[in-house]
């Protein structure tokens, strides 16, 4: 029974990590649009290349944040959460006995 509970817990942690990484879609689209706009701007005004590039990298790095939140949650669900949850499970089992 404990093994079953453990298996379900681990599986759900992995599933949750996978779902959390859906957050990567948004920044991907957003950064793609940002780079496309930057390319357009450079094409229109080639002399402003350095300013546009630095602003774009800055904006991309900020837009990346939302994806990173998902990545942090995913990594925590895989590396941190199983330890905590298995501790909780063990405590419950001990309390039941």
């Amino acid at each position: 029974m404990v093994e079953l509970a453990m298996g379900i817990m681990l599986g759900l942690c992995g599933l949750g990590a996978g779902i959390a990484l859906i957050a990567g879609i948004g920044p991907g689209i957003g950064e793609g649009q940002a780079v496309a706009a930057a390319c357009e701007a450079i094409g229109r005004q080639p002399e402003s290349k350095s300013a546009v590039t630095s602003t774009m990298i800055m904006g991309c790095a900020i837009a990346e944040t939302t994806g990173l939140y998902g990545l942090i949650i995913g990594i925590m669900l895989i590396f941190v959460a199983p330890g905590i949850f298995s501790g909780v499970l063990r405590d419950t089992v001990l309390a039941l006995k």
């Binding site: 900020i62 990173l68 939140y69 942090i72 590396f79």
Partner: peptide, 16 residues
């Protein structure tokens, strides 16, 4: 919160 997590997330995720 957002400033802390942005920096930490980038470095930690890179390491992982």
């Amino acid at each position: 919160v957002s400033m802390a997590f942005r920096h930490y997330g980038n470095v930690m995720c890179g390491a992982v």
